[in-house]
Amino acid sequence: MILKLGFLPSEPILGTAAAVIGGVSVFASAFLAARLAGEKGLLHGLVLGTLYAVFYVAISVMLYANMRIVFLVIRSVIFAICSVCGGVMGVNRDEKVRF
């Protein structure tokens, strides 16, 4: 949204940075969700990633009418993969041993 409002120059590297930040954020949120649930990390990650991808596509279509479908699909797949990995890693993390 900051790019659309014109606060930053529109460079290709900013779009890539936004995709990386989105992937990291969806990974972290799936990790925390699966960690709190304690089970079914794959399912939690997949649901969270799908919801994120749907919202991302909806907002992108509203803001950028001429955005290519290929970019939307690639980023949506990246978000889904990151969220599934976060969910699986969140469930499989061992508890810390406290003395």
Rank of each mutant, 00 (worst) to 15 (best):
I2P: 02
K4P: 11
K4G: 02
K4R: 13
G6I: 11
G6K: 02
S10Y: 03
E11R: 13
E11G: 10
P12Y: 08
I13W: 05
L14G: 02
G15E: 06
A17V: 14
A17E: 10
A18V: 10
A18W: 02
V20D: 00
G23C: 10
G23K: 04
V24C: 08
S25A: 04
S25M: 14
S25T: 11
A28K: 02
L32Q: 11
A34S: 14
A34H: 07
A37K: 14
A37I: 14
G38L: 14
K40H: 05
G41R: 12
G41H: 06
L43I: 15
L43P: 02
H44R: 15
H44T: 14
G45N: 04
L46M: 14
L46S: 11
L48F: 06
L48P: 07
T50Y: 00
T50D: 01
A53Y: 02
F55W: 08
I59P: 00
I59N: 03
S60C: 05
S60A: 06
S60K: 08
V61M: 09
M62G: 12
M62N: 09
L63A: 09
L63D: 04
L63N: 08
A65L: 12
N66L: 13
N66C: 06
M67E: 14
M67S: 10
R68M: 12
I69N: 04
V70I: 14
F71P: 00
L72V: 01
R75G: 05
R75E: 09
S76M: 06
I78N: 03
I78R: 01
F79Q: 13
A80S: 12
I81E: 00
I81S: 00
I81T: 03
C82W: 05
C82P: 00
C82H: 03
C82L: 13
G87R: 03
G87C: 00
G90I: 09
G90R: 05
G90H: 07
R93N: 05
E95R: 07
V97E: 10
V97K: 09
R98L: 15
F99H: 13
F99K: 08
